[in-house]
Write a protein that binds this DNA or RNA. Sequence first.
DNA 1: TTATATTTAGTTGTCAGACAACATGATAAT
DNA 2: ATTATCATGTTGTCTGACAACTAAATATAA
Lengths: 246, 246
Amino acid sequence: MLEVQKISKRKIPQEIAEQIITLISNGDLAPGDKLPTEKKLEEMFGVSRPSIREALSALEMAEIIEMRHGEGSFIRDIDLNTHIHPLAVKMLIKSGTVYEILEARKAIEGYTVILAAQHATQEDLRDLENILAKMKEEMKLGHLGEENDLIFHLRIAKASHNSILYQVMESLSGLMKHCQKHTRQYSRCIPGRPREIVNQHIKIFQAIVNKKPNAAQKAMLDHLEDIRITCQNLENKLSMENAEGR
Amino acid sequence: MLEVQKISKRKIPQEIAEQIITLISNGDLAPGDKLPTEKKLEEMFGVSRPSIREALSALEMAEIIEMRHGEGSFIRDIDLNTHIHPLAVKMLIKSGTVYEILEARKAIEGYTVILAAQHATQEDLRDLENILAKMKEEMKLGHLGEENDLIFHLRIAKASHNSILYQVMESLSGLMKHCQKHTRQYSRCIPGRPREIVNQHIKIFQAIVNKKPNAAQKAMLDHLEDIRITCQNLENKLSMENAEGR
DNA sequence: TTATATTTAGTTGTCAGACAACATGATAAT
DNA sequence: ATTATCATGTTGTCTGACAACTAAATATAA
C-alpha cells in the first residue's frame, strides 16, 4: 500500500490564528498592542465574524491574546518560542506531577551539568556568574523569584552545548512554571531559604568553573533533592493546616 | 494600593473547553473516542452552537481533539511530543545530531533504567521479556530491525513509571528514527553485531529483574556508548570509501 | 471649578437560523 | 460483484440580531 500524506483542508479560523501568530513573531504585533476590532478583521480577512471569533477564542485560550469585553483584544506578554499550550498542560498536570518533573530534571540536569563542566566556554561561565549575581541581589531583598532560578538552570543546559538536551530542559522549565502557578507553592518565601538555595547554586557553579564533573553532578542532584524534600514538607504542612481549620 | 486578583468573568466557550479537558483527564473520554455531535453538546451544555464551536475550535488548535468535516470530533492522543517535537525537528537537518541525541539518551535512559530497576512491576518485566524474545527471533534470521530495539528502550522508560520521562523518551526515539532514515546508518547489518546488541539488552534486562539499579545504569551507559562508537567507526569507514572512490 | 451621574457610541459575548461541503452507508444500476 | 446514485447526518461558514460591557463625552450637582 502506498503511503501518502493526508491533505489537510485548512479551515478558515486556523488560517487566521496562524497569520496572527506570524504577525506577532515577525514583530508587527508586539505585546500590549491592540488588535483591530472584530469588525475590521472581518473586512481585512474577508470572512464572517464567527470565523474571526473562533480564531481569537483559540488564541485567548492559548494565552496568546487577551479579549476584554467591550474593549478589544490585546497581545499578551509572552515568549512564543518557549510557550507551552496551557490547555494541553492542564491535562498533563495531575497531582504528583511536580515530583515527576523534579525526577526528570534529575535525569536531564544531572547529566547536562557533567557536560557543562567539561565543555563550558568562558562566555558560558560569565553568563552563569551574571545570573548568580542577580540572584544574590534578590536574596538581599528577601524575595527570590523563580524566574532567575530557572534561567540559571537553563544556562547550564546551554553550557552543555547539546541542543537536544537544551530543548528538553526548556520544555521542563516551562512545565515547572505552570505547575507552580497551579500549586501555589512558594517555598522560596521560607525564612533562610533563599540563602540556602543561592548557596547550592554557588556550589554547582564552582564545580563547573573548576571543571569537576562529578562534584558538579553531586551538587546538582543534592540541590534538586533538597527542592523535592522542601516541596513535600510544605505540602504536608498545608494539608495539615487545612485539616485543622475545619 | 491594595493588590487584588481581577475577577475573571469566565466565558462560556472556555468553561466548555475546560469541562471537556476534565473529562479527558478523568478518563471518561479516551483518545480515539468520538465526542457527541455539536447539536447534542448544544443541548447538553444548554448553549448555542457558536459557543460550542469556539470551544471545540480552541481544543483543535491545541491539538487535543480533531474535527473531521462531516464526521465528528475525536479525542487525539496527546502528549508532550506536541510541544517538543516541532522544536526538535528543526535540529534534524544538522549533521552530527545523532551524537547529540545519543548523548541525550544517556542522560534520560541512564536515569530511567535506575527507576525501572526500582519500580518495575511484574507486568513491566513480562513486556520487556517479550520484546527481548522477538529480538532474539530477528537475530536468528540475521537482520535486526531498529523497531523492536527502540521499543525495548521505550518499555524501560515506561517501567520507570514517570510519565514525563516516558514522553521525553518517546520524542527522542522519534528523532532517532528520523535520523536513521536520513543518515542511512545500518550498523546492525555488520556480521556478529546483532548478537552483541541483544546480549547488551539482556544484561540490562537482568539487572532490572534483579533490582540492581547501579548495575542497570552501567549496562545501559555501556550499551549507548557502544552504539556511539560503532556509528562513528561506520561513518569514518564510509567517508574513506567515498574518498577512495573518486 | 470640581466631583459625580448620565448618556452614548463602540466593542465584545451570545444567540438563532440558514445553507454549503463533506462522509457514510443504503440503494439502484451496470 | 462493482460501480453510481442518493439520503441522511455532521461539520464549516455566513448573516443578522441583541445583550453586556467599557470608556469617553456630556450633563448635573456640590
